[in-house]
Each structure stands twice: as structure tokens, then as C-alpha cells.
């Protein structure tokens, strides 16, 4: 077919930010997938609970200390996270570098606390279905922390190289921050489920 140019796109930017970026949409779609998985884990938790005569079966409810500290820590990490995202939007390379280093620490600290969360459940994964589901929920969420941590570490390194000062990288930083917010928000219902539902 003969082509008839009717639109000139040469003035458009070479890369879209925010909702004009496919990577942003990809991140959202991944969050939808992960969100379904977390939702499912919670559904299984309640399903098993509905079958059990007592909940938790024959063990005391989990100790609150480690899990609550971790929750507070995660919530606090949202502040630097939002700041990094804002700096990335403003393309402030120096601040983004510092922010990513801080966010890497914010990823490592909860892992340290997570180690104490498993024994705080008073049950092993192979002792009962209750043990299996709480270990699975904790494990699933830990995997998300680790994934985002690795992503943050790699981005942090990247921002110190010659590839750093690029809109595309700033977009990556924003998407990474978005994903961390998701990891934090997804934790809240999981936390309520593991620590507070057995106390009802």
C-alpha cells in the first residue's frame, strides 16, 4: 500500500517516563501476579483455619517482637524510598546514589530480623499444615525482599558507572521504588494474618 505521512513524531521524547514507560506497566503487571499469589496464600491460610478445631493448633500464637519490629522497619523504609523516587524524577544523580545505598541497607535489615521470625512461630514447617502455611507465607515474602534487594544493589552499582546519568536509569530507579512499596504494602495483610488472626 502507498503510505501517506499524516503525523510527525520526531519531536517526541526518546524515552517515556512514568505511565508512558512500558517498564512501569510491566512492573505493575508483575505486581498484579505477585499480588494474586499473596492473596492466594492468605486464602489458603483461612481455608486451613476454617478446618482446624483450634487455631493455631496446639501451639501458642507467634511471638510478636521480631515481626512487629520488621513491620515498623519496613514502614519506615517507605520514607527514603519515596525520596529516592522523587530524586530520580528530578534526575539528581548524587542524591539518587546516596538514596540507593540507604535503600540497600533498608533491604538487608529486614532480612536480619526475618531470621528471628521463623522460630517465633513456635512451629516447624513439617509439624502441621499450620506450620507449612506460615513458613510458606514468610518464605514467599522473604523471596520478594531478596529480589528487590538484589535489584537495588545492582541499580546502586549501575548509578556509579557511566551508564548512570540517563533518563532510562532514573526510570528504573522509580520502578524499583514502586516495587519496594509493593513489597511493604503486601506485607501488612500478611503480618496481620500471621500475627493477629491467631490472637482473635
Amino acid at each position: 500500500m502507498k503510505e501517506q505521512p499524516v503525523l510527525d513524531v520526531s519531536k517526541l521524547p526518546l524515552h517515556g517516563m512514568g505511565i508512558a514507560s512500558p517498564a512501569w506497566w510491566g512492573t505493575c503487571t508483575f505486581m498484579l501476579i505477585e499480588g494474586s499469589a499473596f492473596g492466594l496464600a492468605i486464602a489458603v491460610y483461612f481455608y486451613l483455619m476454617s478446618l482446624a478445631p483450634h487455631w493455631p493448633p496446639d501451639v501458642p500464637p507467634p511471638d510478636l517482637f521480631a515481626g512487629t519490629c520488621l513491620t515498623v522497619l519496613l514502614l519506615a523504609s517507605v520514607v527514603p524510598n519515596v525520596l529516592v523516587s522523587r530524586w530520580a524524577q528530578q534526575r539528581k544523580l548524587g542524591k539518587v546514589r546516596i538514596g540507593l545505598v540507604v535503600m540497600s541497607l533498608c533491604g538487608i535489615a529486614p532480612l536480619a530480623l526475618r531470621i528471628f521470625e521463623f522460630p517465633a512461630q513456635h512451629v516447624n514447617w513439617d509439624e502441621s499444615a499450620y506450620g507449612s502455611i506460615v513458613w510458606t507465607i514468610l518464605g514467599l515474602h522473604t523471596v520478594h525482599i531478596i529480589t528487590d534487594l538484589i535489584d537495588t544493589l545492582v541499580l546502586a552499582c549501575l548509578m556509579f558507572t557511566r551508564h548512570g546519568d540517563n533518563t532510562r536509569r532514573y526510570g528504573d530507579v522509580e520502578d524499583n521504588a514502586l516495587y519496594w512499596n509493593f513489597v511493604v504494602i503486601a506485607w501488612l495483610p500478611l503480618y496481620a494474618c500471621i500475627y493477629w488472626v491467631p490472637r482473635l
Binding site: M1, K2, E3, Q4, P5, V6, L7, D8, V9, S10, K11, L12
Partner: peptide, 10 residues
């Protein structure tokens, strides 16, 4: 029409 409207400038 046998013409296809298109965008240019990529």
C-alpha cells in the same frame, strides 16, 4: 482508499 495514513519521524 488505497493509501495508508502513517506517522513519520522515527
Amino acid at each position: 482508499s488505497d493509501e495508508l495514513p502513517v506517522a513519520s519521524g522515527l
